[in-house]
Amino acid sequence: MSLLSSARAAVRRTSADPPPTPAAPPAHDELTIVPARHPWRWVAAAAVLVLVAQFLHGLATNPGWDWSTFFGYFFEESVMQALLITLELTFAGAVLGFAGGIILAPMRLSKNPVLKSVSWTFIWVFRSVPLIVQLLFWANLGYLYDRLQLGIPFGPGFVDFETSSLVSAFGAALLGLALHEAAYAAEIVRAGILSVDQRQMEAAAALGIPRLRQFRRIVLPQAMRAILPNAANELVNLLKSTSVVYVLAIGELFYQVQVIYGRNGRVVPLLLVATVWYVILTAVLSVLQHYTERHFGKGYRR
């Protein structure tokens, strides 16, 4: 700074001489930064805004959307009940599925060849069978085994049930969703466990921490960071997969709107009722995801 200004002073002094020197270059603190212009950004944004406006205009003016029917059914009682069933299926499917995943993943990673192959086979089978096929299969279990018995394997039984009384349509749906979810959850949890540095297990082992507590206190909380984004994805998937359960005539959201438009023929607004509820529930899940990720991210932010 001082060097520069004295240099400028020197220039001024010599500028007293006859040959007129051009104006001295400005000092560095007199320079202003002009941000680069991005004209194409404006063009692209304008083009997209026009399209969005056109779409919104269509939503508002096209009578096909039939907004009055939409609002008429959005909070309608049977829709609310169906929504509750969708939530129940999602919640129970997620809890049972991830409980299964937390058991299956360590099994697949264990050194015990039997546990390993049982877990591998389970995941292989339940990932390969389409959910809808599985649901129909469980619902028709009664054709295969008309009675189920609880007792000593290959020995006498203590209690037995009629299959159809034990596996209701709702039970079949839950069973199918849980098994399907467990297979996917197992892989998500396994990926999480594999993401934990081997040296963490070693440090825990060196402290003599019992095996189960190592998993619960050291491995799982760290694995959660890798598990959560995938688990949230899977949960959203599950939420929408519950709509497949309509094949078992269970009154969840999608089934219920079908029943209603079967009666009144207003297909589009009723599909929209279901869609908007799925969108809202997904948004709620995303918010939950944000806070859960923040919880398990503690110690990783500076």
């Binding site: 963490q200 440090a203 060196a206 003599g208 019992p210 050291i218 760290q222 503690k298 110690g299 990783y300």
Partner: peptide
């Protein structure tokens, strides 16, 4: 594990638990 619980071990790379 019980035997290890009487022996301290300090690693080159610390290996602290990052979430605690």
């Amino acid at each position: 594990l019980k035997q290890r619980a009487n022996i301290g071990f300090v690693f080159q790379t610390f290996n602290l638990f990052p979430h605690m």
